[in-house]
Every structure is written in structure tokens, then in C-alpha cells.
């Protein structure tokens, strides 16, 4: 599939730029110094999160690209999405999925900082095969140059999007109230812009939705879904408590979409830019839907253990840290009774 017209008009690009700025600003506005402190203090969850975000996700993206035999431009876009740090939306979803919000925030913070180092390395590692394909195709058309991943540009665009994050953090430092407003407004704007982009794409390039082969759809949907799945099982494998499992799962699958847009717009050129953007748009759309469903599922599934956890936390808050809640025999399922994080018996106190 080729794009004969431009996917995004200059006005859309400007809109997108404003949205990226707003969202990253909003993300900064939700972060505090304590979040960074928490990252350093309790590294276990973060480490596992790190493994799943920068170990699993890029591999999942790469695997999908190979299995689905994606055209190289889409493959690179998919890998790029796989290498992204987590976004703030995952914090909101983690909250409603009864996951650990603190862990989700810590993971977002950590991965955003690490992205500067990890993204270029991972992209180089996973995408190099696909860049060769592009180079060959270009040579076949008579263009005498090699296509390379523009590593310098990518780091540059990453740094660029981190500026509004810093701005948001400064606002948060100055006024909590305004920061909260900025955060919500940014989220609101993001929905509007995403819907606008899809809407205009629908109107201007209505054929695009039909022309897009199923593999592309499958890739855009599955990369998130597999992220949820592997993130969940990996944290389960490491015997993390259910609260952490849900947070890590969502954090792994939900990537920071706006950064993808920024990198694609600033670092890549046609002919592959439009194709990459299209995949990023599809991913951003489907991830909202899939994570909504996953969140609802986790919310229902985690209801009981979350209520127990909550009760334990509040009993400890009000009755003292060494208070142990003794539930009647048979009330707690074995799974929870043996879970140290629930603090349901004296020997298991944290």
C-alpha cells in the first residue's frame, strides 16, 4: 500500500505538535519529586517493569513484524512503538484496574528517563534488518543512498518532548491545583485531536481504512494486547502481588503514543513517514479501546483481592502498623492467604 497523497496536512501536523506538547506538559504536571524518590527507593517492581518494557515489548513488536511479514516502514514503526516509554494514560488505567498507581507512576518516570539511552540502542538492534530492506528498495529505484535510522534525530526529538515534561513538573512544583487542571485539559485535548485525526483521515482518505491490509490492523492491535499479556505473566512469574501484576501489565502494553508521533514527524521523511504515522494513529486508537476492556476485566477480577488489600491498608493506617486483620476461616482463598502483600496473617506481615 502506498500513500499517493499526504496523510497529514500542515494544519494537522501543527495540531499534532500542539497535542504532543500539551500531553507531555500534562505528564510533567502529574509528576513530583517523590515519584523519582520512589523509583530509587523500591527498585524491585521497577526492575521487573523495566524488563517488560524494554526487554519484552520491543521483542514482541519485532516478533509481530516478522511473523506478519510487515512492509519495512510499518515494521520500523511497530518496533519504534515497542521501544517507547510508558505514558501517563497507563497511570489512570492502572488506578481504575485496581492496580498499584504508585508503581505505574514510578515505571512511567523511570522508563521516560531511560528511553534516552534505551530507544536508540533497541531501534538499532531490532530495526537494522528492515532498514536494509528499505535501502535495497531505494537502490532498485535508482536512489544511490543508504537508509539509516536517524539516531541523532531521535535523541534530539526525545529531548525536545522532554522539555514540556520539565515545564509541567515546574508547574506542579509551583501550583498543585493548576497542574491538575493542566493534566485533565491535556487528556481532554488528546481525545479531541486523536478523534479529529481519525475523522479527517476517514473523510480525506476513506479508502485508506479498506486498503490497509489486515496485517497492519493485527499488528496495531496485537502489540498492545501481547504487551498486556506478557507483562502480566512476567510479573506473575516473579511472584509479584496482584496489584503489581495489573499495573505492570497495563504499563507494558500502553506506550507513550505522542512521543512516537514526535519522533516520526521530526526524524523520518517520506516515503516512509506517512506509513509510520498511519500505524502510530492506528495503535493510539486501538490501545484506548483495548486497555479500556482490559481495565474493566482487571477491575472485576481484582475486586476481591483489592478490597482485602484496601481493608488491610486502612486497618494499618488507623489501628497501627502491627495490627493484623484476622479473617474468619475459609473467607480468604488460598491464593490470597499465602500472598505476603495482603498482610493477612502475622507471619506474613510486610
Amino acid at each position: 500500500m502506498e500513500f499517493d497523497t499526504q496523510l497529514l496536512y500542515p494544519i494537522d501536523q501543527a495540531l499534532l505538535a500542539v497535542m504532543i506538547f500539551a500531553i507531555m506538559f500534562g505528564m510533567g504536571a502529574s509528576l513530583t519529586k517523590d515519584d523519582f524518590r520512589a523509583v530509587i527507593k523500591k527498585p524491585r517492581g521497577i526492575l521487573i517493569g523495566f524488563l517488560s518494557q524494554f526487554g519484552l515489548m520491543p521483542f514482541v513488536a519485532f516478533g509481530l513484524a516478522v511473523v506478519l511479514e510487515l512492509p519495512p516502514a510499518y515494521a520500523i514503526a511497530l518496533i519504534l512503538i515497542g521501544c517507547l516509554p510508558g505514558g501517563t494514560t497507563s497511570n489512570m488505567f492502572a488506578y481504575f484496574a485496581r492496580g498499584s498507581v504508585a508503581l505505574s507512576i514510578a515505571m512511567t518516570t523511570a522508563s521516560t528517563m531511560m528511553a534516552l539511552l534505551m530507544m536508540p540502542i533497541l531501534l538499532e538492534f531490532y530495526a537494522s534488518g528492515f532498514t536494509q530492506q528499505i535501502s535495497e528498495a531505494m537502490r532498485a529505484e535508482g536512489v544511490e543512498s543508504d537508509f539509516v535510522i536517524p539516531t541523532g534525530n531521535i535523541i534530539g526529538s526525545l529531548l525536545l518532548v522532554l522539555i514540556p515534561v520539565a515545564g509541567g513538573m515546574f508547574l506542579r512544583y509551583k501550583s498543585r491545583e493548576w497542574a491538575k487542571t493542566a493534566e485533565d485539559t491535556a487528556g481532554f485535548m488528546a481525545i479531541i485531536v486523536i478523534l479529529y485525526l481519525i475523522g479527517t483521515a476517514f473523510i480525506r482518505h476513506s479508502g485508506l481504512f479498506i486498503e490497509t491490509p489486515w496485517e497492519i490492523y493485527a499488528a496495531a492491535i496485537c502489540v498492545g494486547l501481547l504487551g498486556f499479556l506478557f507483562g502480566f505473566w512476567m510479573s506473575r512469574l516473579f511472584l509479584l502481588p496482584p496489584l503489581f501484576q495489573r499495573a505492570i501489565s497495563l504499563e507494558t502494553g500502553i506506550q507513550n503514543g505522542p512521543i512516537a508521533f514526535a519522533i516520526i514527524l521530526l526524524s523520518f521523511t517520506e516515503p516512509i513517514q506517512s506509513q509510520m504515522l498511519w500505524l502510530a494513529i492506528l495503535y493510539s486508537t486501538f490501545i484506548v479501546i483495548t486497555s479500556s476492556f482490559i481495565t474493566l476485566y482487571y477491575r472485576r477480577k481484582g475486586k476481591f483481592d483489592f478490597e482485602i488489600y484496601k481493608n488491610t491498608v486502612i486497618h494499618n493506617r488507623l489501628f497501627g502498623d502491627d495490627y493484623v486483620t484476622g479473617y474468619p476461616d475459609g473467607f480468604l482463598p488460598k491464593r490470597i492467604e499465602n500472598d505476603p502483600s495482603q498482610g493477612a496473617s502475622a507471619s506474613q506481615k510486610r
Binding site: F304, E307, I308, K310, N311, I314, Y327, P328, F331
Partner: peptide, 8 residues
């Protein structure tokens, strides 16, 4: 109204 030991 359903309540159990985890309610407050």
C-alpha cells in the same frame, strides 16, 4: 445490600 468482612 451486600456487605462482607472487607467493608467499612
Amino acid at each position: 445490600i451486600r456487605l462482607d468482612c472487607t467493608d467499612r
